[in-house]
Simulated assay, not measured.
Amino acid sequence: MATLKDVARMANVDVSTVSRAINNTSYVHPDTKARILASVKELGYQPNVIAQSLRQGKRHTIGVVVPRLHMTVFAEIMQGIEEEARRLGYATLICNTEDDSKTERECLTRLRNGFVDGIIIAGTGHNGRLLRDIRSSGLTITQILRQQDTTLSSVIVNYENCGYEATKYLESRGCREIGLINGTMKIAPYQERYNGYHRALKELGLSETSAISSSPVNSLEYGYQCALDLLEQNPNLDAIMAAVDVQGIGAMRALKEQGIKVPEQIRLISLTGHIIGGMLETTMTSMEMPAHEMGLKAALMTIRDIESPTEPKTPPQHLVFTSSLVERESS
């Protein structure tokens, strides 16, 4: 493997001149620089990115910690993050946790001890102290979708309004027995969606039917089991709100197996819309969030903080998006 010295020898210059030419740290005569770059190409020289990063104090890499990418809104968010990071000269490292706090802690520790300048996380809420410690050590932290700690920057959606508006919408369609497939209240969006749902029911004088399963929350199995639980709790159910699309798909399967038609007998709506909802055999009504734009903003916010010359870093920023109702066949 070619070294910096090999390039210098071929170009007939000092090693320091090669370094300046490659890194653009100071002026090198155009003819000399052209000769150096020609030697780099001929020898196939590859700079030591890790050593270079350590010298510069920047790795130009962001770690992204999410529960799951497959069939979730996090896939669209991740595309936005990667697109903006690449535009700004940063790479991304992705960790999937399946919402397991131990796995999350291991991911955060590896990222902290590895080569990242900042972390974007959709957290479980169980590693707040570790996140604050990482932030105090100088790494940038941005929460995406889940604001578990107000001392850390975040890019989120108004989930309470989402749950509230979806419930009011279903009531306007004639529904009186509205069930909610939710997740653990320890994760902020699930608590906030429930708050909106509960507030709307109270205003409308309706009773609550909600379900939480032990399966991984971002899964078909979770939605399937919760739908069966809702039906067992309330045989008169006429609407189901699923926290995320993948749960809604699982719920739709459970309803079909029970011989219940959507939307004739039970209307179905997802509170976190994903592109897949519009491609189903019975397309799914959803509260759509601008996931790609949220990813772009999270990456931009993170990199701006990384590159901020101020110490200590800028105060936490909180960007809140709104969801919009997209009516489809399931309601």
Results as ranks from 00 to 15, higher is better:
Met1Thr: 13
Ile275Ala: 13
Leu152Cys: 06
Gln225Gly: 02
Lys168Cys: 14
Glu329Tyr: 06
Glu106Thr: 13
Ser137Pro: 05
Arg253Leu: 09
Arg193Val: 15
Thr167Leu: 10
Phe74Gln: 04
Ala11Ile: 02
Gln233Cys: 07
Glu311Gly: 03
Lys261Gly: 04
Leu69Tyr: 09
Gly114Asn: 03
Ser330Thr: 03
Glu327Phe: 01
Glu83Trp: 12
Met301Ala: 03
Met241Arg: 04
Asn113Tyr: 08
Tyr224Gly: 01
Ile36Val: 11
Thr302Trp: 08
Val217Gly: 09
Glu221His: 08
Arg173Gln: 13
Pro235Val: 01
Leu93Cys: 10
Arg267Asn: 08
Thr61Trp: 03
Ala291Gly: 09
Pro30Cys: 03
Met241Thr: 03
Ile50Lys: 01
Pro235Asp: 00
Ala254Phe: 07
Ile141Asn: 05
Thr32Trp: 03
Ile144Met: 05
Arg267Tyr: 05
Ile276Gly: 07
Ala34Glu: 13
Leu108Arg: 01
Leu230Cys: 09
Tyr164Phe: 15
Arg135Gly: 11
His198Cys: 11
Thr302Tyr: 06
Glu221Ile: 06
Ser324Trp: 10
Gly123Trp: 02
Gly163Ile: 11
Phe321Pro: 00
Met241Glu: 05
Leu300Cys: 05
Ile144Gln: 05
Leu139Glu: 01
Ala38Arg: 14
Tyr194His: 14
Tyr222Thr: 08
Gln148Asn: 13
Ile77Phe: 02
Gly259Arg: 06
Met287Asn: 00
Ile181Pro: 06
Ala242Phe: 10
Gly223Met: 09
Thr184Ile: 05
Ala200Phe: 10
Ile141Val: 13
Leu130Ala: 12
Ser153Arg: 06
Lys261Thr: 14
Arg146Gln: 12
Val217Lys: 11
Asp238His: 02
Gly80Ser: 07
Met10Trp: 08
His29Tyr: 11
Ile276Gln: 12
Met78Ile: 09
Asp31Met: 10
Lys313Gln: 12
Asp6His: 10
Ile134Asn: 08
Val244Phe: 12
Arg193His: 14
Thr103Gln: 13
Val320Glu: 11
Gly277Arg: 00
Arg20Trp: 05
Arg35Val: 00
Val66Asp: 03
Ala21Val: 00
Ala122Arg: 08
Leu131Ser: 13
Met1Trp: 04
His318Lys: 03
Val246Trp: 02
Thr17Leu: 00
Ile94Cys: 08
Arg35Leu: 06
His70Gln: 15
Val18Pro: 04
Glu82Val: 01
Ile134Ser: 08
Glu203Ile: 05
Ala188Thr: 15
Arg267Gly: 10
Thr124Met: 02
Lys168Phe: 10
Gly295Asn: 08
Asp238Thr: 02
Ala11Trp: 04
Ser19Asp: 00
Lys102Trp: 04
Leu131Glu: 12
Asn23Thr: 11
Ile187Val: 15
Gly295Leu: 01
Lys297Pro: 00
Met241Tyr: 10
Asp14Gly: 14
Thr310Met: 13
Arg193Met: 13
Arg328Phe: 00
Lys256Phe: 12
Thr282Pro: 00
Glu307Tyr: 01
Ala254Ile: 05
Glu311Cys: 12
Leu280Ser: 07
Gln52Met: 11
Leu54Val: 09
